[in-house]
């Protein structure tokens, strides 16, 4: 997911440099993010009920994405729905953590930070995309586009930093598991 997002960002920069429209890449990036997320939670949450919810959420998102996708505009509704489903996934995982009580130290558990990052990222950018015409629709020099796009980028950067920390924690978890199973 990180690699795909990175490639998409590079293409965005390339398109922007040649003054080509690159807003469709936001939409594609959303699809990549959601696929990665659904896969991660699918692996982590093994109960049938949770997996049904994950799949249902993903299907709803894909349907909205297909309906709302545009090559020339940011698909605000699809991105908004993506954030709502991200929040739902994170809440689902928090519920799982609190009911199963299998994690000794939550602060060094990677999926907790992934979920925390996701919920903050989604909460911070949800309304920006749900009301995309008001927030990112006004491209005039005194418009709010630059303010909101900066907000979106800041939350995205924060989220990707949290993801990196989670990756590092995940490697540590694997090492500990290997040591315990050898």
């Amino acid at each position: 997911m990180l690699v795909f997002s990175f490639v998409i960002s590079l293409i965005q920069i390339h398109d922007a440099a040649y003054r080509h429209n690159n807003t469709y890449l936001y939409n594609l990036n959303s699809l990549v993010e959601m696929s990665g997320f659904a896969a991660a939670y699918w692996i982590e949450l093994k109960s049938r009920r949770n997996r049904t919810l994950i799949i249902s959420g993903f299907v709803v998102y894909v349907l909205v994405f297909l309906y709302d996708f545009s090559w020339t505009n940011i698909a605000g509704v699809a991105l908004g729905v993506q954030r709502i489903i991200m929040i739902l996934y994170a809440l689902l995982y928090f519920h799982y953590i609190l009911t199963k009580m299998q994690i000794q130290n939550l602060l060094i558990h990677s999926m907790f930070w992934v979920s925390a990052g996701a919920i903050v990222h989604a909460a911070g950018t949800l309304f920006v995309f749900l009301f995309v015409k008001v927030t990112l629709g006004d491209l005039s020099s005194n418009g709010s586009y630059y303010l909101y796009i900066t907000i979106v980028r800041t939350f995205s950067a924060f989220f990707y930093l949290v993801l990196l920390v989670s990756f590092w924690l995940r490697r540590r978890e694997f090492r500990v598991t290997d040591r315990l199973t050898v």
Partner: peptide, 14 residues
């Protein structure tokens, strides 16, 4: 409001 709620949920869960 959403951000405050999100942070509250994270702190509460932890």
């Amino acid at each position: 409001v959403l951000l405050v709620m999100a942070i509250f949920i994270i702190v509460f869960v932890a």
